[in-house]
Nucleic acid binder design. Sequence first.
DNA 1: TTCGCGACTGACGCACGTGTCATCCTGAGG
DNA 2: CCTCAGGATGACACGTGCGTCAGTCGCGAA
Lengths: 210, 210
Amino acid sequence: MTRASVAKDLATGASGQCMEKGQRRQQILVHAREVFAKSGYHAAKVDDIVAAAGVARGTFYLYFEDKRAIFEEIVDRLLVRFGMAISRVDPKGDVDEQIRDNVRGIVHLLMEESVTTKILLTGVSGVDVAFDRKIQLFFGQVHSLLEEALDDGQELGMVSKGNARMQATFMIGALKESMYQVVIRGWDDDEADIVEGLLGFMQRGLLTRG
Amino acid sequence: MTRASVAKDLATGASGQCMEKGQRRQQILVHAREVFAKSGYHAAKVDDIVAAAGVARGTFYLYFEDKRAIFEEIVDRLLVRFGMAISRVDPKGDVDEQIRDNVRGIVHLLMEESVTTKILLTGVSGVDVAFDRKIQLFFGQVHSLLEEALDDGQELGMVSKGNARMQATFMIGALKESMYQVVIRGWDDDEADIVEGLLGFMQRGLLTRG
DNA sequence: TTCGCGACTGACGCACGTGTCATCCTGAGG
DNA sequence: CCTCAGGATGACACGTGCGTCAGTCGCGAA
């Protein structure tokens, strides 16, 4: 091991050769996430990632198939957690509270995972045809879920009559844009404020009744 | 001129050598727009553009500095038209009608220019640090404009009291996502329906009052 | 007919980033 | 002390796409 790489290890807290296998993987993953968030997929070079992680180029390929694979893994992890943060609304219970919980859970996750959220909201397009399709599919599923919920809500008279698909679109757009502002523009809004803002928007809209 | 390129000219309607200068430029621009929309900035190769336009590689560089420049020009044109589609709301007139006109104008423009809109909504991130900043700046300006309008509206009692910045975010998000669905997923919603949907969302929100 | 000019061409050289692999290193076990 | 296994290394070869520029083409003027 060269002197230079020893210096890097000291700087990043890596323990040099023969680190436990999963740990090294994790170390690369964490640094890659930061690099992707900072530069986006295309501008992020494998060299940047290995430099940040303090390992050699070859080491990277011991743990990941290629650049795309590590990117996909990073995004996938968030998508899985995102999916888990959503729960179906049961009309027998307190609907308002369930909606609030859902919104709260999602906003919480995205703000907690702000680095990955930034990647999801900006860096995900144009990686690859297959990857694009995958992301589109995911958001499509979320959209369908919400649309169904709104449809049910309309039946029960809890949601304004109207095009549920469009309503779902507006809601998702509002959420995406809020997260975008927080994550990209660095708004320091309180998590609870955003949740209440979104819920208020759902309930009352923007304009006072004329 | 080779036989191959003559064939191309026939196919694309180009008139071969010595076409009027502005026309050739326009021809390349139009085809570039389609290529960028289909593949995104990074996947779109200059070779794809010149092939689509039916001109030689060198010709491209007679009319455009480089790939980035033509991309920027395409996006800029839309941004300018977008800016012009927005007009300040005058509280002395019929506010509802002015809001409707604004929304209508913007939605109309974006759907009319659907190819460029697709580029704006998906292909714009990660081109270049400077370009990213520029786009961000533009949306920031739109955001400020809307925020001010909402603030004024609150003073006049026409807009629900609340965080105007957040309200602006939600509205822009809803608009962006609607356009995204139309342009990427190919929804064939009527322009007027989308406009009414957005306005209804602003006025009444999603949920019935409980 | 020949010349000049400007539009057009496309093969070429270059830069850059990727993934590989021959080699090195180190710690554990004999 | 020697050896060996396997993690780690980084120089290298390769591919890809970009921008250039020496040359072609065809039209109008002389």
